[in-house]
Design a protein around this nucleic acid. Structure first.
Lengths: 160, 160
DNA sequence: GTAAATAGTTAGCCGTGTCTAACATTTTAA
DNA sequence: TTAAAATGTTAGACACGGCTAACTATTTAC
């Protein structure tokens, strides 16, 4: 079966893809360190991913993603990226926490929500004149617990 | 240990709390139907939750949340609510999908992100004159793939 | 070229959460 | 009031994903 990877298997694919970007060879030890799991867990995971046709991994050898594996890893990374940017750049959450939350949620976001969220982030961050005023207004609101009256006035005034 | 419920355990607590709101008595069968799992799974889960002091459940009897259980269930429901409103009311995602995604992610959102997101939703949806213009602009952008020029003009014009 | 260090695997365990099949209890209704 | 239906539990299995201990293979350095 190809469909329905568990969250963890996606984590492995993602880790392998990222390591591959950094180094020419990916080995069990690297994956182990990156994910913070012991080496036997990596071996077991690679075994499973091999069965599913997502990685190639000769005994005692280096790890390569198959085309399928690359595709899935790419999707996971995209979900991560979108979530991370939303959390950090729009909500203004600390990058460390944003990374963590993105890591946790990246396996669960539906395609529908992903696309909407991606567009939303894009929409906000590519505003013709930099960040829109309301984002600044949100920061104020978050920090002070109430609206900045000047911005409210503008908001009301712009009603067509 | 009280800390660190798995996602599933939180699902059970949430289901019990919701059922409790609807009916005076909560039984294994109801939980089973609501979560789409078989009854032995419910029994097993209740056993574990009992051990953790989160539910009370006499053999063959009805299920009650302890104070602790209620507290955790409340937190889960809050996370669900915030995520759901963000997805459905701000991103405009179909309610069914929004419920599903909220269900999946509600166990993973950090407190920091939760509070930020909650404020964000509140900020957007309590705009003094109903939904702000940019939300409408986002819908347009999502549907047409480009900005509504009139709204862009307004956005640029409002720069102080 | 061989011994030590490093890398990787296997075997076997644990905890979580699910299932089915079989059994026990409680409720309902004839 | 007792037989049938509904409800709930236990036992035993499985998949996932993690761990340690012990083993094997490969690499490095002397």
């Amino acid at each position: 079966m190809i469909s329905e990877q568990t969250a963890s298997m996606e984590d492995y694919l993602e880790a392998i893809a990222k390591l591959r970007e950094e180094e020419p060879e990916v080995r069990v030890t690297q994956i182990s360190k990156r994910l913070g799991v012991k080496k036997p867990s990596v071996t077991a995971a690679l075994h499973k991913l091999s069965e599913d046709g997502l990685v190639q991994h000769p005994r005692y050898g280096t790890v390569e993603l198959t085309r399928q594996g690359q595709r899935i890893a790419g999707e996971v990374m995209r979900r991560h990226e979108v979530l991370f940017r939303f959390l950090s750049e729009i909500l203004g959450i600390d990058q460390g926490i944003a990374q963590e939350d993105a890591c946790n949620m990246e396996h669960l976001l539906s395609p529908t929500s992903l696309e909407k969220l991606a567009k939303f982030v894009e929409f906000v961050l590519t505003c013709p004149k930099g960040e829109p005023a309301w984002l600044e207004a949100f920061t104020y609101y978050f920090e002070h617990g109430e609206r900045d009256q000047e911005i409210v006035a503008r908001c009301l005034g712009e009603e067509s």
